[in-house]
Design a protein around this nucleic acid. Sequence first.
DNA 1: CAGCATCCACCTCGATACTG
DNA 2: CAGTATCGAGGTGGATGCTG
Lengths: 122, 122
Amino acid sequence: MSVSLASMRAEHPGIFADGCPTRTVLDHVMGKWGILVLLTLSDGTQRWGALRRNIDGISEKMLASTLKTLEADGLVLRTAYPEVPPRVEYALTDLGHDLMTHVIPLMGWVADNANDIVGPRE
Amino acid sequence: MSVSLASMRAEHPGIFADGCPTRTVLDHVMGKWGILVLLTLSDGTQRWGALRRNIDGISEKMLASTLKTLEADGLVLRTAYPEVPPRVEYALTDLGHDLMTHVIPLMGWVADNANDIVGPRE
DNA sequence: CAGCATCCACCTCGATACTG
DNA sequence: CAGTATCGAGGTGGATGCTG
């Protein structure tokens, strides 16, 4: 495991350069909604409607496109049941869970420190 | 330290809701450039010109506005020396270093897995 | 229920030029 | 060297209405 940008650069030359895959991952995962979707799914499999309700402020359009991107990235698994009415469930893949292993502590830090950062100003 | 979204919600009711400070922090830190600036600064104090060169693809405008936001957030410290020619140095604050403690491992994971995520498709 | 299609307002961002 | 000012294209994302 790398412990600094310099050591990461030593292992992966050109890392984080323009056009590097890491940039794409960053854009997908770190975007406005990506993290919130993944975070919500880290609580367990959920249906479309549940996601929509649990992620405050997200529109159907953004939920759909975010889920599609994350599914294509192999972080989210979509399972549609051929029933009437339709039922579709979303869950994290193993890769997604692995990612959240690192993201959850970060979110914990953000939750603990958000008021110190934003609070004094706004 | 929380280990799940549910436990975070137990500690901080309304966390990650619309308008919650965590949303603002997420937008600042996780934006396209915020993470890259913080990551570059985690290697140590750097001057404006060095940052511009080290962060591939960033424009002067975005570097300026990103630095201003992060400085206002208390994550980055700006020090201007009253010299001719001007010299300005940027460094992480203690809060910034604390944040990067959690971000660096995540970036390591991204570096190791980016090809698995993006590679097969693009 | 779980979406997709369309429209469009905003806002981010890059390019360029200029300043102390 | 370290920025600021201005402009304009393009993308993000919200609102609405419709479908299987």
